[in-house]
């Protein structure tokens, strides 16, 4: 189980480091050279690639998790995260239709999902703690 966690961190930390470097670099190059066409598209996509790598690392964390209960709990937390993100985005969309709120920042979908994952994991951890104490 520890090996699976270590493998996840070995993928997550370099990916997030790349994200920070690519985001800063991409913004600086855009500001300095005001590229257009294909170079602009390439620069815009560049910071997204490490985020995709993080999503892959999260998937691999499930695939490589040897403990079936921990794996089931992780999937449960991911379902909670997905439900929370979809709920927030749905409510926001309807509010947006009325003009009550600005256009939703779609690039926040993944951070929002990650926040939901944290909520899900805390919820399941608390549930286990309470059940463990009652046992």
């Amino acid at each position: 189980m520890r090996q699976a966690n270590r493998r996840y961190l070995n993928r997550f930390i370099p990916s997030m480091t790349c994200y920070a470097v690519f985001l800063l670099g991409s913004n600086m190059l855009e500001a300095a050279y005001a590229p257009t066409g294909a170079p602009l598209i390439a620069l815009a996509i560049l910071p997204a690639l490490p985020i995709i790598a993080v999503i892959w690392a999260m998937g691999m964390a499930i695939v490589e998790q040897p403990d079936e209960y921990v794996r089931a709990k992780l999937i449960h937390a991911m379902l909670i995260a997905t439900a929370l993100m979809l709920s927030v985005m749905t409510v926001w969309s309807f509010l947006e239709d009325t003009g009550a709120v600005p256009h939703k920042p779609v690039h926040l979908a993944f951070p929002l999902w990650c926040a939901g994952l944290l909520v899900g994991q805390v919820w399941l951890w608390a549930r286990d703690r309470i059940a463990g104490r009652e046992a």
């Binding site: 403990d67 079936e68 209960y69 286990d128 059940a131 463990g132 009652e134 046992a135």
Partner: peptide, 15 residues
């Protein structure tokens, strides 16, 4: 060869 939380969850019927 499982986690302690797995044993706890099975024992208490949660898993």
């Amino acid at each position: 060869d499982v986690s302690r939380q797995s044993v706890n969850a099975i024992e208490t019927g949660r898993y």
